[in-house]
Design a protein around this nucleic acid. Sequence first.
DNA 1: ATTAGTTTTATGTAGCTACATAATCAAGGA
DNA 2: TCCTTGATTATGTAGCTACATAAAACTAAT
Lengths: 232, 232
Amino acid sequence: MSADRQSWKDIRDRIRDQILDRTYAPGDKLPRDADIAEQFGCARTTVQRAMQDLSDTGLIERKRKGGTHVRANPVTRATLDIPITRLEVEETGAVYGYQLIDRKVLPTPREVAAKFEQVEPNSMLRVQALHLADHKPHILEDRWVSIETAPEILDVDLARESANEWLVRNKPYTRFDLRIYAISADAETARMLATEPGSALLVLERTTWIGTDPITSVRSITIPGYQLLTKS
Amino acid sequence: MSADRQSWKDIRDRIRDQILDRTYAPGDKLPRDADIAEQFGCARTTVQRAMQDLSDTGLIERKRKGGTHVRANPVTRATLDIPITRLEVEETGAVYGYQLIDRKVLPTPREVAAKFEQVEPNSMLRVQALHLADHKPHILEDRWVSIETAPEILDVDLARESANEWLVRNKPYTRFDLRIYAISADAETARMLATEPGSALLVLERTTWIGTDPITSVRSITIPGYQLLTKS
DNA sequence: ATTAGTTTTATGTAGCTACATAATCAAGGA
DNA sequence: TCCTTGATTATGTAGCTACATAAAACTAAT
């Protein structure tokens, strides 16, 4: 009886196979969940879960009443995990190190304020720090922290604990923006990262909020050769 | 009766709020689903769905029998959507253009073969092409296509239709790898992208498979200033 | 004490029903 | 013809039950 109990993942794979082998081509409409359920001999809930997953990964599109369609223009949907920098370093077996470069309350520069959209903080704590892997520079971070949303940060000894780590543990966000781009190292950045001016560097820029309240905005400048990876 | 019917998203938000306000701190164990369900006056299934979502976004960790814990080291989990290049360009209101630079069957270079892990194709179709936005270079792609997995590609007029587009529509993948990094433009690349040698360029490298069969591996070199964005 | 085997338990999931909701489509009216 | 309105319909989801499964906790044998 429970012998042929089918998991929604099985159903998902079978539907995906039918899309791969062109039983249903891009743009085509798939049968209603109920019919597919009957075809595979399972419950509609199971089909629903399978379909939801295919929809999440971008292979199909679903609309109430409109039905399910194979996406004509599939997107590549990747999941990026960005861990705490210390853990990322330790993961590779390297020794993690951290240096506070500067820590100062300053009026919020316009370009930083703009990142927070609705609520623009007046003055913020600027923290510049360097993360090290095996005593060599790894990531240079330039961070602005809202002292309205996270006033406790002012009492944290940022020479000992990185703002990255403190915030991630003490100010979980409800929303964030991530922006990835490349820059050419200027003299100052090159010096800090112990590399050549003009090197191509990958930059991750993250802004986080609790509700609509701004928490922090960081620019993490990585060393030459740094790569972001995703696995599916 | 249905007045206080609660959605799993409501439950998720309430649990998340409890984590944000330190009712449950990082590392803490949450009550069993059944107890939470009782507390909120909903069914365990609803809690299960809420928990699953919080687990997916990296805020909590769940283990059978072990229970649910607030992650001590939360990760930032972002979803990246990479559309077909043409659509990405058209989205901005720009005019999309495409130029085939070269198309040749070649023995697979070792570094390309290595990307495919298990099955390493002997000879592949190499396609170099340029995507344009408003008649200016936008993305330079250097692609290797498996002529074993996708022999039909040999009959496609790649001067008219981009390999990007043909593959995405005709060879859906079951697995992919994505690698993001920065390079400094060499003379050749700079010329093709109409920029200066030495400019910092963001590179997306994508490898796709059907099952374990290699489909394609592309290196997409973007113009200076190109940014990848995620929203949550 | 250590290990192997067994029980317990919390999450995971399939199937069912009932109802909610968004889109579409068709009918009717201005 | 156009617009509004209401019926229809496919997906979305909550609640229930029953069972699956992994892992921890316990027990018994060596």
